[in-house]
Structures are given as C-alpha cells and as structure tokens.
Design a protein around this nucleic acid. Sequence first.
DNA 1: CGGTGAATAAACAGATCTGTATAGTTATCG
DNA 2: CGATAACTATACAGATCTGTTTATTCACCG
Lengths: 198, 198
Amino acid sequence: MADDTTAIDWTPKARQILAAANELFYSRGIHAVGVDAIAERAGVTKKTLYDRFGSKERLVVAYLVGRDQAWRSFLADRLTEAGGDPATRLAAVFAASAAWTAEHSRKGCSMINAHAEISDPSHPAYPVIVGQKQWMLDLFATIAADADAADPAATGRSLMLLHEGALVAAGMGVIPDAYALAGRDAHDLLAGRPPVSA
Amino acid sequence: MADDTTAIDWTPKARQILAAANELFYSRGIHAVGVDAIAERAGVTKKTLYDRFGSKERLVVAYLVGRDQAWRSFLADRLTEAGGDPATRLAAVFAASAAWTAEHSRKGCSMINAHAEISDPSHPAYPVIVGQKQWMLDLFATIAADADAADPAATGRSLMLLHEGALVAAGMGVIPDAYALAGRDAHDLLAGRPPVSA
DNA sequence: CGGTGAATAAACAGATCTGTATAGTTATCG
DNA sequence: CGATAACTATACAGATCTGTTTATTCACCG
C-alpha cells in the first residue's frame, strides 16, 4: 500500500524490476509496455512488483528518477575529470552525451520521450522530466559564466539549444556524429562569437 | 477492407475523424488514445472509422502524413513570401516554427513525439517521421548553399541542430522565446562564423 | 425507382491492461 | 522456535482496447 509519499523499499527484486522497467519503458515506450511484461522480464511475480512499487505510475516515476540520477552521476564524473577550464568542461558535456547515448540511450533522450507520452503536467513524473532539463540549462549557464560570457544566461540557453538538438538528431539517426558537430558549434559559440543580447 | 496500399476515401466524415485524431493523438499521445475516443470526438460511429481507415495504425499514419503536409505547405507559403535572400529565408523558417507552435503545436514536435512512441522502424509511420526531418535538413543545406557556405551540408546540419533544439525547448517550455534565440544563433552561424569543417 | 454507398446504432468477440486476492514457500532474526 | 518479511504461483475482477457483425436509415444517381 505504497502511496505517493512513502519511499520505495529497495529489495534486490525491486532493483531487478526497475532494471527491467528501464529496458522496456525506454525501448518500447511507457504506454506500450504492461506490468506483466516487466514482471516477466524481471523474473518476478506481478504481486512482487505491486508490493514494491504500488502502481505502474510509481514505477514510471522510479524509472525516470533512476535514469536522471544515473545520467547526472555519469556526467559529474566526466566533469570532475575535465577540470576547471570552461571550454574543456563544455567539451566534456557533449562527449559525455555521446558516450551515454552509445551505452544507454540509443533511441533518444528518455526525458524527451517520456514528455511525449505524459501529457498531464500534474503527473508526478513531470517535475523529474523538466527538472533534468532545467538542471542542464543551469549547467550550461554556469559554464558560460565561468567563461566570462557577457550574458551567461543567454549563452547558456544557446548552448542548451545545440545540446537538445543533438539529442534529437542522434536519437532519430538523422545527423551522423551529431554530438561531435554540436560540440564544435558550442565551442565556437562560447569562445569566438560576439554575445547575442536581447 | 483497406489494406496498407489502398488509398483512403476522403469522405467528409473521414476528414472529421482525422481532425479528431489530430487533436487527441497530438495532445494525449498515440498509445494513450483509443479509437472509441476518436470516434466520439468526431461525432461518428466506430464502424465509420474502420470503414474509412481500416485500422488504428493506418489512422496514425494518416495523422502524421496530414501534419507533415500541413507543416510543409505552411512553411512553403512563408518561404515564398520571404523571397530569395538566404538570411531572410532562414529567419522565415524559425519565424514559421514559432507561429506554427503557437497555433498547432504547443506540446512539441509531433514527429519527435511520435518517434518516442513508435519504436519499430518497420512501422509504416517511420518513413513519414524521419522523412520530415530529412526534408528539413535538406532545406537548411540548400539555404547554406545559397549563402555560399564553404561546406553547405555541414552548415545545414548545424542549422538543423539549432532548429531541433528550439523545437524541444519550446515544447517543454524550458526556454522562453526559444525560436527567437535559435533564429538569432542560426543567423550568426550562417553569416559570420568561419565554417566548421571536418 | 431501384441500386449503391455512406452513415448510424448497438451488441459482441477476444485480447490485454491495471490491480487484487488467496494460499503457500523460504529465509532471517530475535 | 516462532514471528515476520519477501517472495512464488495462480486465479480473478473489472476496465479498456482493437476490431467485427448485424441491422437499419438516408441520400444520391442512373
């Protein structure tokens, strides 16, 4: 009887369920995958799934929170490796996205994809989705500020556009090496061009 | 008995059904909307829906083809208005996207959203989705070529990144005036910066 | 005036979906 | 050793979903 507020009990089986949900929700879509399929892939009874997560909706939220956390920690590692230089840090973001896509995200950004399926802004997954984008936007603005951009917020938004564009283009396979291209453009934008001011 | 190849008989009711499908599929998602809901919104019997479209899958394809055609014709009108100057044409593309979003596309790009839900590349809607992106990419490359870019294909891809990024950012509401910003960046990229070459 | 096609109305089939109930198993732990 | 928690197995309830069937109405058209 896990309601919206109670935390999830992370038993080993719960982790297996989340791993199965991650694979299926991501590759086939949230609405297209039923809880039976997830339980079967996890090698678990449907009752166990409901004992751990309470509802499909809560499992969906856990799926998105899990991906969000994994991405943030993945990126954080690469950023500490990158050191303090803003240009290097910026390059690390695009390189991290490229590596992440190759490993875990071949069908595009899971947050963008989830946003396509979850229309109701009052859905508990909504803040997770928008929160990740906001976090990335803040990161780009910080990098722009560290690079002494005249208008760090505006430059951060421009960098964000390039990054989101690469996410989509890579996810649909319409631009080869989308991250490399976007990374070069972002670098040029941060370093060379007179700032875009309103 | 309409199979995959036979054309759709565009009776008045068929157009009502497509209009209803357009509203519901776009706002709630393809998998989340049932044919009963579409028939009801269209003021039509489910039998009529199946007599006209044969299956939900064919209705989905018609929905995406319809949006694709509407967008292309909408954009084509603005491009003829814009005349021959590449920079003006480029600005017209981003202005058209902004206007289109305000009128018909408040929840992001329908092709990107459909791609999130349709995982199977052999789905008949797949070429429609990727086809629109390819067409936009060609358009940007043509504009870059008309502007005498050193590498029109590469510049076209960069412009595409900015445009796709604006689609996502606007659809998720994370960047205000995303199209205006992306349009300025695209203009600067086309006009000012030394070309990015591999 | 008779036929044809488009449509309504409404029930139904069969599958699938979320979620629950019941009963039993296993392992740990005080 | 007995309680508790995690889990299996399985059946079920009720809703919803795609798609079909049957019967009927209505308008147009040769």
